[in-house]
Design a protein around this nucleic acid. Structure first.
Lengths: 136, 136
DNA sequence: TTACTTGCAAAAACTTTGCAGGCGC
DNA sequence: GCGCCTGCAAAGTTTTTGCAAGTAA
């Protein structure tokens, strides 16, 4: 992830590393505030603004993805570069990434029914992770 | 839509009607601010707060759906009650609703690969509507 | 009448911007 | 050393809350 940042021409700074590490260590969706808190354990002078700015960069590079949810959409999760989707646990917010969403069939039927040319899609699953399912 | 509100125990007020009508007449995603503006042409004393409150009710009843987008997620669209998804035009924001997203196969493969129990999903398509495609 | 609604004003929450100083390269 | 980065403070936005007055039933 840091390597990709470097390739893209961004310098390797302490603040960015703190944000990136905080995001990667989290196996659940993290809000900018969460990331600030976690990042500060690595770099105490880290500011919220830098978290936002770094997230912006990561998002543009496809390294982080914003998770959208019923009750707001300001959680972020690390993401393998490129296309992919996330499943998020409705209880603990832990996320898992997956690829291959065979929705080609849906696309053609939507095109036929609505006349739209579909260029992109956003898919997100919600459920219970193995750990939370066990707890019940 | 108003009938459904009544059945759910909400009274039929001028303000709510203004918001509902504004949302229904819009064939594109509308922000709370858009709805306030449009709603005021019907009920000039309408306040922004009521727009938010009404949208909250409609959302809970499944009559309105929040559209999530790259650059923020505060657009709403009227929605047929129950399960469904939207395609939104990336140019004019016009939306169309569709049902039948055959993602059952995806679900089982995700369950197998991640161990999550998937309970719900959220899918949104982006593209060009017939009108915007023609304009180019 | 009685409880539900509304809208104003204010507060709160969340993001972005301006800018002087700091740090990576 | 030069130019990209950072963080503080402040400004902007968006959404929520408190409350007295208004309205549906």
């Amino acid at each position: 992830m840091l390597a990709t940042l470097a390739e893209a021409g961004f310098s390797d700074t302490r603040a960015r590393r703190a944000v990136v590490d905080a995001l990667c260590e989290a196996d659940s969706g993290a809000s900018p505030a969460d990331l600030l808190a976690r990042g500060r354990s690595r770099h105490s002078r880290l500011g919220q603004v830098t978290v936002y700015r770094t997230l912006g960069i990561l998002e543009r590079l496809g390294l982080a993805r914003k998770l959208h949810q019923e009750d707001g959409c300001s959680l972020y999760a690390a993401s393998t570069r490129g296309h992919g989707h996330h499943v998020i646990c409705r209880t603990c917010r832990r996320v898992a990434e997956f690829e291959g969403c065979s929705i080609e069939k849906v696309l053609s039927s939507v095109t036929a029914r609505t006349g739209y040319t579909v260029e992109g899609h956003w898919l997100e699953l919600v459920g219970l992770c193995p750990a939370c399912r066990g707890k019940r």
